[in-house]
Lab assay of single mutants.
Amino acid sequence: MDPFLVLLHSVSSSLSSSELTELKFLCLGRVGKRKLERVQSGLDLFSMLLEQNDLEPGHTELLRELLASLRRHDLLRRVDDFEAGA
């Protein structure tokens, strides 16, 4: 399986429902409101961002910004580990 997708799945499974709600709010300018209403998990949101090329294995800035906004430094370390091994 693609290591970047494994990372996104790992991050998604670590998010609380309130954190997902916050991420959806933060992505309002990037993803349409109707699409965001269908998001049920972090993976749903990340999939939309992947489709729009806002997220890519070599383009993790948005993911970092979102996780920093949540103050999830543990998840930021996972992104660091991914990039160190990528």
Rank of each mutant, 00 (worst) to 15 (best):
L70S: 03
S18R: 13
R34N: 13
E61P: 06
K24A: 03
T60F: 11
K33I: 10
V79Q: 00
G42W: 02
V39N: 03
V39C: 11
T21W: 06
F25T: 15
V11E: 00
L23S: 02
L63V: 04
D80A: 09
K35M: 05
D44L: 03
E83W: 04
G85W: 07
D44I: 04
G29D: 15
D81N: 09
S18V: 09
R34C: 11
D81E: 11
G29C: 09
H73T: 12
G32H: 11
K33M: 11
S16L: 03
L5H: 10
D74T: 01
F4S: 02
A86W: 14
S69D: 12
E22G: 05
G85A: 12
R77I: 07
G85R: 13
V39Q: 01
R64Y: 06
G29A: 11
L75R: 00
P57I: 08
S17R: 12
L62H: 06
E65N: 12
V6T: 15
S69T: 12
S47F: 11
K24N: 03
L36I: 11
G32D: 14
L66R: 01
V79Y: 04
T21F: 08
D54T: 10
C27W: 03
C27V: 11
V11F: 05
L7I: 03
R72L: 01
L23W: 00
L76G: 03
S12H: 04
E56W: 09
D74E: 03
L15P: 01
S41C: 10
D74N: 03
L43N: 09
G58M: 09
S13N: 05
L50V: 14
M1D: 04
S10E: 15
V6E: 14
E61Q: 12
S17W: 07
G29P: 10
L36S: 04
L45N: 01
G32P: 12
D2C: 04
E37V: 08
A86M: 15
V39M: 07
D2K: 04
S16W: 01
V31N: 03
L45T: 00
R72I: 03
V39Y: 02
L28D: 15
D81I: 09
M48Y: 10
M48H: 10
E83R: 07
L26S: 07
P57C: 12
L28T: 14
G32M: 07
E22M: 10
L66I: 06
R34A: 14
D54I: 13
L70G: 00
